[in-house]
Amino acid sequence: MTAAESTVRYDSDILRRPLITEFQNFWRFRGLIRLLVVRDLTVRYKRSVLGVWWTILNPMLTIGVLWIVFSNFFGRGGALEFGEPYIVYLTAGILIATYFSQGVIAAGSAIVNSRNVLIKMYIPPEIFSLAAGVAAATHFCLSLIPLLLLTAFLGPGIPWTIVLVPIPLALMLMLVTGLGLLVASAAVYFRDVLDITRVLTQLLNYLIPTFWTLDFIAGSPKALVLVKSNPVYSFLVVFRTWVYGGEMPPAWNLIMMAGSAVLALALGVYVFSRNWRRVVVRL
C-alpha cells in the first residue's frame, strides 16, 4: 500500500477553524476561482454583439444622462476640489457606486445560483461568492479605461498616485465579498433578501456624493454625518484623490476604508461558515 492510498481526504470530525479554513480554501481553490470568473465573463458576453464593451457602455450611458441633467447644477466655476471637470467627478462616482452595488448583489446571489453544484459535489461554497466579487472587480477595471481617458484629455491629467488605485480596488473586493456572504446566508432562507439588497445598495449609493457634491448638504451637520459614516464614501474619497487628485486623502478615510473591508470580510466569512451546516440542507 502506498501512502497516498490511505490519505484521509475527508474527516467530518476535523474542526473547521473559523476564518483560517476559509482563507486556506480561497488559496487552495484559486485555480477554480479563476475558471469561475472566466465563466462569468464569457457567459455574460457571449451572446451580445458588443461583448465585453457593454461593461463600459453601460455605466457610460448612466453617466451621460446624469451629465446632461446635472452638469448645470454642479461643478460650475471650479467648485470641485481638484479643479476637475464635472464629467470626470461624476464618472469616478458612478464607477465606485456600480462596483459596490453589483459586487454585493453578485456575491450575494452566487451561492443560491450555484445550488445545483453545491448539493452534488463538495466545493467550499464561499469560493463562488469570491469569484463573483472578482468578476465585478474585473468589470470595474475595464470601466477604468474611459475614466482614465476623460482624466487625461479633459481633466487635470493622470497623476503618479494612479499606482495606488489597486489598493481601494482590492479592499472593495473584500468589502463586497464579505457583505455578499452575509446576504447569501440570509438569501438561502428567504427569497426576497436579494430584492431587498438591491434596493438597499441603491439607496446607499444615493447617500454618497456620486453626481452631487458635499457643499450641496453643507448646511446640515446631520446629513454630513450620515454621508461620511458610510464606508463607501471613504472609498470614493480615496479613489477620487488617487485617480486624478494626485494627493493623499485624509487619514480617517484610509482607516475607514481598510477597516470596513477587513471587518466586512471577516464577519461575512465567519457568519456564513457558522451557518452553512444549517443552510446546506435547505438548498
Binding site: 484521509v8 481526504r9 475527508y10 467530518s12 470530525d13
Partner: peptide
C-alpha cells in the same frame, strides 16, 4: 463521524 480515505468520484 465520517472518514473517507483517498480520492472520491461522486
Amino acid at each position: 463521524r465520517v472518514i473517507v480515505r483517498g480520492q472520491v468520484a461522486p
